[in-house]
Lab assay of single mutants.
Amino acid sequence: MAAGGDHGSPDSYRSPLASRYASPEMCFVFSDRYKFRTWRQLWLWLAEAEQTLGLPITDEQIQEMKSNLENIDFKMAAEEEKRLRHDVMAHVHTFGHCCPKAAGIIHLGATSCYVGDNTDLIILRNALDLLLPKLARVISRLADFAKERASLPTLGFTHFQPAQLTTVGKRCCLWIQDLCMDLQNLKRVRDDLRFRGVKGTTGTQASFLQLFEGDDHKVEQLDKMVTEKAGFKRAFIITGQTYTRKVDIEVLSVLASLGASVHKICTDIRLLANLKEMEEPFEKQQIGSSAMPYKRNPMRSERCCSLARHLMTLVMDPLQTASVQWFERTLDDSANRRICLAEAFLTADTILNTLQNISEGLVVYPKVIERRIRQELPFMATENIIMAMVKAGGSRQDCHEKIRVLSQQAASVVKQEGGDNDLIERIQVDAYFSPIHSQLDHLLDPSSFTGRASQQVQRFLEEEVYPLLKPYESVMKVKAELCL
């Protein structure tokens, strides 16, 4: 049975990233139509530049190519590739079939990587351009969430054990800070992308030097003109047959890092959902379990974690691919890159769409948070109580021993009897502590235990987050809708 299948058929496997999760716009960027249309555009740009620099290419040939950029006979191309065992030459023939007058000058002087690699770089750039505003929107939604809850005390956790208090907004800023680093890295790697350009079979530009009869300047002009037509500021000066596969490492490393950030955020949300302090959106008709109707599973956060793990592992592909590119190139890269580049971007696209949807509907339960604080705060307040007693004339050592005994009794009630923490009640009825009984409410005010959390939130948002989001103001209103 021949390899390949009808990918629109229910009898043929289709990647869930495309069929179930990723956005239509990201799927289109990695589609065959987008790819092969870009090949034709690159052939047109090459012909236009070659004509401008004096090669015998007519206006009629150029116009014929322009008129057929979208006229792609995919069936013919597939048949040609089956016959020739070469995808680029299959599309040269297919393009030439609908451009008979231009057929002889299509791909003039070029090698397969002229269309293959340059198209990949265009796709990487455009895919990054799709991700950047999506990530900015996630940051914006979380920034709104953090600002609104900047002063809401909550129990902090280290080692997932109760620690000092923080605020809900401050905790959210930990998430935002990681995503801001990801946004900066995505922008950097996007701006650092260079075009492969017009380089020939081993990167020496020998074929173009021959076409222009040894004119170095025209060869350099050709490279520059096509690079500018493709919208790049610069091209690699040095290439082998391909652009260095280190570029793929750079791009997928940034995406993998984004995956790590999203995994951490969504894990926190899942843990908070278990504590009943916070939940992701839950639709009115949504079913959490087929057997347990009360369940409210954090399905979206779980999906993000599941896909983020996949995204983090994909960076190993370009690392290994770059390491086995012998001399000017081997074909070890080809099949692998067809999979890992598309999957990385479709996965990143999915987790950003999902995280935006989550961040637009996060639900906080202040009463649950308050109750958990009441359970733990008495123990945390013991040092403040000791200091207040010393100020009232008591002995630190005597007070410490009193607190120690009462704390152990209260802990026994919590752990052995399943009761509430009654340390404060014990202190309130103990005559030894009568000098500070009137101060206990103040000493137990949760806001006095959150330090500068709310001020940190305000400063972080104003100095770091809002300036970073400013270039994306025009796209901030787009909502994230999930079908599944």
Rank of each mutant, 00 (worst) to 15 (best):
A2H: 15
H7V: 11
S12C: 14
R20M: 01
A22N: 13
P24N: 15
M26R: 01
C27E: 15
Y34G: 08
F36N: 06
L42V: 12
L42T: 09
E48N: 05
A49L: 01
L53R: 01
I72G: 03
A77F: 14
E81T: 03
R83G: 14
D87R: 00
H93D: 11
G96R: 00
K101R: 11
K101W: 07
A102M: 04
A103W: 09
I105M: 15
I106K: 00
L108D: 04
C113W: 02
N118T: 00
D120R: 02
L124K: 11
D129N: 10
D129E: 10
A136I: 15
I139A: 08
S140M: 14
D144P: 10
A150R: 15
S151D: 10
S151V: 09
T154E: 05
F157I: 03
T158I: 00
T158W: 02
Q164I: 10
L174F: 15
W175Y: 06
D178R: 03
D182Q: 01
L193R: 04
F195T: 03
G197D: 04
K218P: 11
V219Q: 01
Q221S: 09
V226N: 01
V226G: 02
E228K: 15
E228W: 15
K233R: 13
A235K: 09
K246N: 02
V251F: 09
L252M: 13
A256V: 07
A256C: 06
L271V: 09
L272S: 08
E279Q: 03
E280L: 00
E280W: 04
I287L: 06
M292Q: 05
P293E: 01
P298F: 07
C305Y: 02
L311A: 04
L314P: 05
P318A: 08
Q325S: 14
R329N: 05
D332A: 04
N336A: 13
A344S: 12
F345H: 06
T347E: 06
T347S: 14
T350C: 11
L352W: 02
L352Y: 07
N353F: 06
E360R: 01
E360V: 00
L362S: 08
I369S: 11
R372L: 03
R372T: 05
F379D: 01
N384K: 07
M387F: 08
M387T: 14
V390F: 06
Q397H: 04
H400F: 05
E401R: 11
V405P: 01
L406P: 01
S407K: 04
S407G: 09
Q409E: 11
A410Q: 04
A411I: 09
K415V: 07
E417I: 05
D420R: 05
D420H: 02
E425W: 13
E425F: 11
R426L: 05
Y432N: 10
L440Y: 06
L443A: 02
S447P: 12
A453C: 11
S454I: 09
V457C: 12
V457A: 06
L468S: 15
S474V: 15
V475M: 15
L482S: 10
L484C: 13
